[in-house]
Amino acid sequence: MTTTDSFLHVTDTTKQGETAGWLRVLAALRKLPLGLVLAWLVLTTVVLWAAMPWLFTAYDPLQGTPGGQLKAPSAAHLLGTDSLGRDLFARLVYGAVHSLSGAIAAVGVGLIVGSALGLVAGSARGRVDTVLMRLVDVLLAIPTLLLSLSIIILLGFGTLHAAIAVGATAIAGFARLMRSEVVRVRNAEFVEAAFGSGGTFARVLWRHILPNSLTSVIAYTAVQFGWAILQISTLGFLGYGAPPPTPEWGLLIAEGRNYLATAWWLTTVPGLVVVTVVLAANRISRSIGRSSP
């Protein structure tokens, strides 16, 4: 529908000579979903924060300026300073790497373990399928936060441990999705044809089943990424993630909690950053999900 629309529009404008080029650019710009562009912009910015934090701020995230404690946002300190005189914006920028790497590790654990489980279950069927899927049911039966906490108490506190704990809760979802995709594609005619023309199971899996399930897995990964950022910030807030001087976003909010009455920016701004990043991840996930056939 939209493709024919833009096609008509393009053929229309090319007839009108000089201004056609500009019109086309304008039309393309108008067609661009603003929310999606913003979402990508947010994610790119945060990735850049994680990769090259020194480009964005001149302040040290761990070293405060004496006498500059709890200053409200100003030209010198864009987002104000905390109780030790550290620049909040610098801490947010330097904290991005902790939240992002944690979320990536968590989603990685869920994606790899969960997809493997789902692939095996969906391909093997029969008894293996039943046993694996019951196992997934068990993972789902324990509320996610309690499962994370059980793993945290086992592994100990820390960024990586928190990431693994969050990742373990993502396994069940990935396993279910992957299995349903495998079962769906398996029953498709072209897969039957591939088997019929002599394809081995592994080859059909690699050439046909995996590529066809990729879109929904990628869309789900994006959602899980946003969700993992939320979970990791929650664990950080509870004090089970990175230890205190680390500027992890959840921990920033936890530290700002004692200054609610005097320094609103310490809790408000990091939370807004988390919400923005999660919203961006969800928006991107939806756009991927929609573009799939």
Binding site: L230, F237, I253, L260, W264, V275
Partner: peptide, 22 residues
């Protein structure tokens, strides 16, 4: 709903305290 789902619960609690109590 998609906005509400993206809000960390602990932050929401703190914001409510900040707005309604302080």
């Amino acid at each position: 709903p998609s906005l509400l789902i993206s809000v960390p619960v602990f932050w929401l609690a703190i914001m409510l305290i900040q707005i309604f109590s302080f």
